[in-house]
Amino acid sequence: MLQFSFWDILSNLLIATQWTIVLSLIAFVCGGVVGLILLFMRVSGVTPLEWFTKGYIEFFQGTPLLMQLFLFFFGIALFGVEVSPWMAATLALTFWTSAFLTEIWRGCVDSIPKGQWEASSSLALTYIEQMRYVILPQASRIAVAPTVGFSVQVVKGTALASIIGFVELTKAGTMLNNATFRPFLVYSLVALIYFCLCYPLSWGAKKLEGRLNVAR
């Protein structure tokens, strides 16, 4: 049997951490783009669009992320498409992230006074222009802190991709544990690495929130 030193374990975990970071970034960026599109639909005042987004958000916030991963993994296969864990994880995490971001951002948009909508309406701006030039610039200031805060959930969410076989930090931990039989050490290190990824984001979110409260 292979012998693993502490440094072997750590370096293997760190290599896998790269994939945790990549998956987090993709989920966050793609989720943000989809979330922004959904946000435009959610606050459009067009009833069918609003109902659709509400249902979408209800589903992705009301079911376990793990189930969503399974559904994408096995669901895409039904179309006869070869599914990789990577593809299923990216899709599931993107949709899941978008649902949460849409809801967070909707709260921010709702906190903008109604008069801003009316004034920009009366100046002949279209809905898209109102959002682009009047509402979003104001809402985004409030949105920064909770959005950064949610990025922590995204990083942690990527850990579930291990269950459908995507090799990132958690999966690497499981594999190393099976090879070394040193679960206490391996999972301590895995936890520590996640902490190093997430804590700065949590801290940043808190600081941003504090700054905003002082500014008011």
Binding site: G115, Q116, E118, A119, S122, A124, Q138, R141
Partner: peptide, 21 residues
């Protein structure tokens, strides 16, 4: 055609509603 209409009909509100940003 509300866009065309509003280009020619201005409105001023009780609460000013200036864009603060």
């Amino acid at each position: 055609n509300l866009r065309e209409l509003r280009r020619h009909v201005g409105m001023v509100f009780q609460q000013f509603n200036l864009f603060p940003h």
